[in-house]
């Protein structure tokens, strides 16, 4: 993270043309940080990203290493500050590696969902003829309860984390398509789109280069909020045994494994539960904050 921000700093200096855009990013960031709750969420997300990126450094033990002598140690035990599970695996190390899994699955599924959703949304918003067909298809996807759809897809594809990514991304497509379509509908009525057409630009060029950049704000907000849902759904699917397979450390799977020992060692369910809660909460408040920060009308009351 630190490296990339330093790199971004360099870009600002070398590339003057993009300095305005960077300024916009900095401005949005400043407004976001003003929101205390969003700042708190941002800190949690940054911590999760750092833990996930450098998991082997933070984990005190390999996540799948069993130590049956020291099983079911409580919180604060010597050498295992978050205790161990029924096989003597270090809960902290598993938590750290679990952060990696949920982040990767979250990013992967949101990215895939965005690609599909943006494509469908752009097409249906811009081309009136495709609108009806695509929106009915989207309605069809909406008709399924999300987790049921994901389970259906996993039942067809088989249980694995990659299939979880696919299942969750398919489930994000309809919402994203709706949001993008709405923005496209309002942007395409703008005079500058007609002006672009009057210059002889092709539809593809107008869509990709002129309509899409004007829809980024709602897409960014959607992506952030969706990360929370995706992480939660990954945990839910893993809890049901449809996602990560043992011995992979995954928060939902950790809760599932811990539920048999709920009365003897409650930390096995509580610790990963808190982790899930914090991360989901963080993405939600950051999404909320971003929505306010990216809204140009908010400037008036600040």
């Amino acid at each position: 993270m630190a490296d990339s921000s330093a790199l971004a700093q360099k870009n600002i200096n070398t590339n003057k043309q993009e300095s305005k855009k960077e300024k916009m990013v900095v401005q949005t960031f400043k407004r976001l940080v003003k929101n205390k709750l969003a700042l708190f969420g941002l800190v949690i997300i940054v911590i999760q990203v750092i833990l996930a990126a450098f998991a082997p450094w933070f984990a005190t033990y390999p996540p799948a290493e069993q130590d049956l002598v020291n099983s079911e140690l409580g919180i604060g035990s010597e050498g295992h500050w978050l205790g161990t599970d029924n096989y003597g695996r270090d809960v902290w190390s598993r938590l750290v590696f679990g952060a990696r899994v949920s982040l990767l699955v979250g990013i992967g599924s949101v990215a895939l969902g965005l690609v599909g959703g943006i494509a469908l949304g752009l097409l249906s918003g811009y081309f009136k003829k495709l609108d009806g067909v695509i929106m009915r298809f989207v309605d069809l996807l909406f008709a399924f309860p999300g987790i049921l759809l994901a389970m259906l897809i996993i039942a067809m594809l088989g249980t694995s984390l990659i299939n979880v990514v696919i299942a969750i991304s398919i489930w994000s497509i309809p919402t994203c398509a709706r949001i993008v379509r709405g923005s496209v509908l309002s942007v395409k009525k703008q005079e500058y789109i007609l002006a672009m057409r009057s210059l002889g630009a092709s539809n593809t060029r107008i869509l990709m280069k002129h309509v899409l950049p004007n829809c980024t704000a709602p897409i960014i907000v959607f992506a952030t909020m969706r990360m929370a849902t995706a992480i939660l759904s990954t945990a839910a699917l893993s809890f049901l045994g449809l996602g990560a397979q043992p011995p992979t450390a995954e928060w939902g799977a950790m809760i599932a494994a811990g539920q048999d020992f709920m009365f003897t060692s409650p930390h096995l369910t509580i610790v990963p539960g808190i982790a899930i809660m914090l991360v989901v909460f963080a993405f939600n408040v950051v999404g909320d904050g971003l929505r306010d920060a990216l809204d140009p009308n908010m400037e008036l009351d600040q």
């Binding site: 005079e191 002006a195 009057s198 002889g200």
Partner: peptide
């Protein structure tokens, strides 16, 4: 369009793309 025949629009406020 834009090559032999060009057009200027009424609202200079909205006829330029705000993000570029």
């Amino acid at each position: 369009r834009g090559n032999d025949i060009s057009m200027i629009f009424q609202e200079p406020m909205t006829a330029l793309n705000p993000v570029f």
